[in-house]
Design a protein around this nucleic acid. Structure first.
Lengths: 200, 200
DNA sequence: AGACCGATTGACTGGTCAGTCAATCGGCGC
DNA sequence: GCGCCGATTGACTGACCAGTCAATCGGTCT
């Protein structure tokens, strides 16, 4: 295992280059040669590390989405009130965007919202996130913190959809993205959805 | 004008076929010949009526999106309370989906959420919808019906995002789509967002 | 009849890439 | 020094498809 340790990890280099190029041009209009050029690597090397252009995208998605799934589970694990759990989820997603906007752009634009092409492939994993959020809502309903006349699946979709749309807004410069806006946006989404979910 | 009136409008036939094919296979993986075949028309005729495959999609989008813009404006025009205005908007979008799910799938998946390719082209029109919704929120803030400490643009994005995500859920069979679910979903979105927007 | 013209047809072309593969490199063990 | 093997290179190929275009059809007007 320790036997192989080239000074620069070309595989990683290719993945990082792919993030930049996919974010810039979109998956469909990037040629494999664009990735190779951006990575400063020969064309063929991409195929040494990945089966296809699609596998590069898959890898990027899976890498980050699994973190999201873990974060949601962790948010649900603590004995916090459901509102705090949802806030943790929102915070994680928004933080992910601030940390690496290009990667999040790729994931949202090319996978999550491209449910025809790649979304199809990853529907199960995407769905797992919605389900986990729904479970948080359900938990809140059981303790009486949230009212029970709302389908948790609806609530989950609305909550996630609102957040994703905010990210889209930032990605495409539709809403202000100053430092303070991120925190404000998070508070707003949590406030609206939760105020709607809590008993009157 | 009345001089040309072929019994069947081939142009319309092509557009309707395109809706079906785009919905089934997605824009990128439908060949122009698929559209022609589905429409029962020769390949070249598509190019007689449209400049390119992309123009077919543009036409479909513009046709329906202008209805949405009109509906939002109309919702805002009446002297109703802002909550009722937002409800009218949600109702229109959901009704659009019930009326022609395939067309809405195409618009959402291929344009609205494909902000790299076509979204770019139509960003102005898409943005107009967000802006109009934001104006409704702003109006509510002015009369004191909504609290003023929330950026109307954020509220607009969250509101629209929540609805679009619900449509996505129906499109991809992630949430139940029985007759009663549509009304329930509409009520829920309006309730949550508005409850969050109204003063405590 | 016959000229005119938009509607309609579908074979064909040009360009674009994804993926292949044979060749070369370079580090390591013996 | 030599052989082994994974890493790396980039030229090449085969498939695919958007868009072109020359030919034909069929209705209408004179």
């Amino acid at each position: 295992m320790a036997s192989k340790a080239p000074p620069i990890d070309k595989r990683r280099q290719i993945l990082d280059a792919a993030i930049r190029v996919f974010a810039r041009q979109g998956f469909h209009s990037t040629r494999v040669s664009d990735i190779a050029d951006e990575a400063g690597v020969a064309y063929g090397l991409v195929y040494h590390y990945f089966k296809s252009k699609e596998e590069v995208l898959n890898e990027l998605f899976t890498e980050r989405w699994s973190l999201l799934l873990a974060a949601i589970d962790e948010a649900d694990a603590g004995g916090r009130p459901p509102r705090a759990k949802l806030e943790a989820v929102a915070a994680f997603i928004i933080q992910s965007y601030r940390h690496d906007p290009e990667l999040m752009k790729v994931i949202i634009v090319e996978v999550t919202r491209a449910a025809n092409s790649f979304g199809q492939t990853h529907l199960t994993e995407i769905r797992r996130a919605y389900d986990s959020i729904a479970r948080i809502v359900e938990g809140g309903q059981e303790t009486g913190a949230f009212r029970s006349d709302i389908d948790p699946a609806f609530a989950s979709m609305s909550f996630y959809g609102a957040i994703e749309q905010l990210l889209s807004g930032w990605i495409f410069d539709l809403i202000p993205a100053a430092d303070s806006d991120f925190a404000k946006a998070k508070d707003f989404v949590v406030a609206t959805i939760c105020d709607g979910l809590e008993p009157r």
